[in-house]
Design a protein around this nucleic acid. Structure first.
Length: 232
DNA sequence: GCAAGGATATCG
DNA sequence: GATATCCTTGCA
């Protein structure tokens, strides 16, 4: 990745450090989607840190594989993978090249284009089901049409659906202001804020101490943090 | 509590 | 090549 001028380069530099610091840096940063489905922007409010091959919760724990290649590359690049056969998850690669650390973007608070996000969620839900059950589709659409904006991207799979993210964006440079998916500083996010920390979710296989480390970071009290209805 | 769903890592 | 598992979600 070529060094780029301006904020993108600055952000990349801040992502190049320790993954926990990078995770805190990402909180409040704007995720921008600029494609044919409409401009969308949201504030990152929840991330998890994954710290390279020694971290037994990380995809890098088996070393470099066909899937996790971007994790070993330069910071500020997207690592997108498919989980549970149906949801894409967006990670921001962190640390110096070769470090294989990354942050999973778990929740985003919509700022601009929430209706485009809703439309993308509906498209995703339509395409998800193999059997075409019209009644089920109608129920899904009703649920999504009634969803409050702050719940449109309040989970890792939901972030991907709302921002039309799939593995075709794997390896994309998120710090390049020309990218159709990118990161930008939030001019309104510079104020005081409280960062919450908990253990990471969905990694029971990792064993101690990895399951217990407080490496999930949230903007405390933000309505778009995932699992407010089922907090762990 | 569990089904949906496909790629992945690992084993043979 | 087969199979257990997975950084999830929403409904029964």
């Amino acid at each position: 990745v070529a060094a780029s001028a301006g904020d993108g380069g600055n952000l990349r530099q801040r992502l190049a450090g320790e993954v926990q610091a990078a995770a805190r840096t990402l909180l409040g940063v704007l995720l921008i989607r600029d494609d044919a489905s409409g401009y969308r922007a949201g504030r990152i409010v929840e991330v998890e840190a994954y710290d390279g091959p020694q971290d037994q919760a990380s995809h890098a724990r088996f070393g470099r594989t066909a899937r996790n290649g971007p994790m070993f590359g330069p910071p500020g690049v997207a690592y997108v993978y498919l989980v549970y056969g149906m949801y894409s998850c967006l990670n921001v690669v962190t640390g110096p090249e070769g470090a294989a650390s990354a942050c999973l973007v778990r929740a985003v608070e919509p700022v601009v284009g929430s209706e485009a996000m809703r439309a993308a969620r509906i498209r995703f839900e339509r395409g998800r089901r193999r059997q075409d059950d019209p009644a089920r589709h109608a129920a899904d659409e009703t649920r999504l049409r009634n969803l409050p904006p702050e719940r449109l991207a309040s989970g890792p799979g939901l972030v991907a659906a709302a921002f039309s993210i799939d593995r075709s964006l794997n390896g994309l440079d998120l710090c390049d202001q020309e990218s159709p998916l990118r990161l930008e500083p939030d001019p309104d996010g510079a104020g005081p804020r409280e960062v919450g920390t908990t253990a990471r979710l969905g990694i029971d296989y990792a064993g101690t101490p990895w399951t217990e480390l407080p490496w999930r970071f949230t903007l405390a009290g933000n309505p778009s943090v995932s699992g407010s209805s089922r907090q762990r």
